[in-house]
Design a binder for these strands. Sequence first.
DNA 1: ATCATCCGAGAGAGCGCTCTCACGAGTCGC
DNA 2: GCGACTCGTGAGAGCGCTCTCTCGGATGAT
Lengths: 338, 338
Amino acid sequence: MTETPAGRPTLETVARVAGASRATVSRVVNGSVTVRPDVAESIRRAIAELGYVPNPAARSLVTQRTDSIALILPESATRVFSDDAFFPGVIRGVGEALEKADKQLVLLLASTQSSHDRILRYVHGRTVDGVVLASMHGADTLPEELRAAGVPVVTSGRPLGEATVPYIDVAHASGVRAAMKHLIGLGRHRIATISGPQDMVAGRERLAGYLTGLEALPGAVPLIEEGDFMRQSGIDAMERLLERDAGIDAVFAASDLMADGALRTLRRLGRRVPDDVAVIGFDDVEAARFTDPPLTTVHQPIHEIGTRLAEQILRLAAGEAVEASVVLPTRLMIRESA
Amino acid sequence: MTETPAGRPTLETVARVAGASRATVSRVVNGSVTVRPDVAESIRRAIAELGYVPNPAARSLVTQRTDSIALILPESATRVFSDDAFFPGVIRGVGEALEKADKQLVLLLASTQSSHDRILRYVHGRTVDGVVLASMHGADTLPEELRAAGVPVVTSGRPLGEATVPYIDVAHASGVRAAMKHLIGLGRHRIATISGPQDMVAGRERLAGYLTGLEALPGAVPLIEEGDFMRQSGIDAMERLLERDAGIDAVFAASDLMADGALRTLRRLGRRVPDDVAVIGFDDVEAARFTDPPLTTVHQPIHEIGTRLAEQILRLAAGEAVEASVVLPTRLMIRESA
DNA sequence: ATCATCCGAGAGAGCGCTCTCACGAGTCGC
DNA sequence: GCGACTCGTGAGAGCGCTCTCTCGGATGAT
């Protein structure tokens, strides 16, 4: 083991050991083909021997690239990582795809309002080549500001309002319509919904899917109670629904957690599922297979959302153009609750 | 808005605009006090006007710091982000604490075996000032290799085998002992356990807690079935336990997910909880409040694990010494299942 | 054999920053 | 009133890398 006295080896060190110039070593490191094979070989040997690893700071100082991508999670701190599997799944998808491309993942948790500025500053510093924004809430100004800052941006979920940055989303409405069709096919005709918050696109589109799905049922009137995607809100909303109409024979909940809450309320009030009331959720989280009874739900390809986000941002960062939006299909997972 | 023709403003640009030298601007940016107030003020104005943000690559090239910390999650891909809230909680804790210290969080998902080398290379490149390792599985060689690479390391959970790097962990065994004491106080005397995998420290220590806890019960014999912390394994293990001994009147499950599984098996086989069989879990995940009946469980301060990890790695990165281990307390959350 | 061509390799500048060192001006003591 | 300080500021080197430009030698054409 050849130890260089002065700390970690640099290109210079490798060049000396291999008897070549810094430039040539750099060529080998970066995979240039215009290097004589035997020279390249001796350089590679020197690199291995010295345990040389390029200094990324020096490199990005000149290349103006950093080979890292930021993933911003601007959810309120308490919600981001509830037992909802969405964000973890997206993180994993993004992480895997970036790993393949040999890029780094920088996680920016934007819990507080103050972090807004911090993120903007950070991104302005050009520490990342691109930004993946997992924005879920309403008309966030962040996507726009980032775009204005000149950084490539991709968001998860169609932004509310003007969609000025490319996004990846799932076909919320059509997934819900499939669920509604299934319920109607089961002969249900008093179909209620527990909607998500209406300041989120996911909440709005799932409700829209319910409304258009209901049109296939002549004379049916919408029966809506709003929740916040979490379990407790499903429990409460189901109670309100039954108070408003005890004859409900089906309910579509805009999230699995709320569907699970609804299941609990129904059980407590003596309704059998699916015999008396059929229940369908949305998300297909792990736990949906373990509810009582197992939950019929609309599956969304969370992992693929992540990988597609990564793909898009990498193309954008490489200067290529990408489609303004990619909408991934959802599909109905039929289990026992409907 | 003064636009510099050549792209983003640099220190040089700011210096010219403010009529000062690069060195002085650097002083202001880095908060040196030895700058005349009026000069500092005009420099600050120039910075604001130009929207100057320091180039981190250039900075770390000279300071040899990067102001970022890597969080390595070396779990097998499928398990990391199941509905177990552990890793998300730790990420959030680490993220928050790093945000306060104005450090960045780089996420390294080490799903495959190949990523081992990638991580080592990455860390060798000194792109991070320190590494937080959320290692859960057995005698991983990574902590040791990282230490050998000369990077500050802190792990979450005591490493199996030689503990050569500082770690943060929770008091698994004493938490379980509290649970056992509670069960014994309830008058139970046929207490079984669904243990975690024995190649993880958490699995081993929780089992150890069960065994020592059981000693308070004269003549009691251990009754153990092993699970993998996931729900299905709890369902299965509970079945095996009842086959082995139908008279079980209490069970401690080493995770909430397994406890939930046990609850299902018990319900299916007509056992009432807690009347016939008392059940206690471990973790206190969000969903534990929603099991049927609500789960009595050992709470561990997940978020604090994250913040403490961050704290330790920051101190280490700053060249300070830290305690070899920090063990955080657990506490029994008594709900209705026991 | 001579000249144009090409290809592999080295020299050197420069990316944007920090930090040491030197320097000039003001302050203090005697 | 003069040397000894102090204190704010600027000049300049250098962090480790990439990339352009140049150059020497080998090759091919005439």
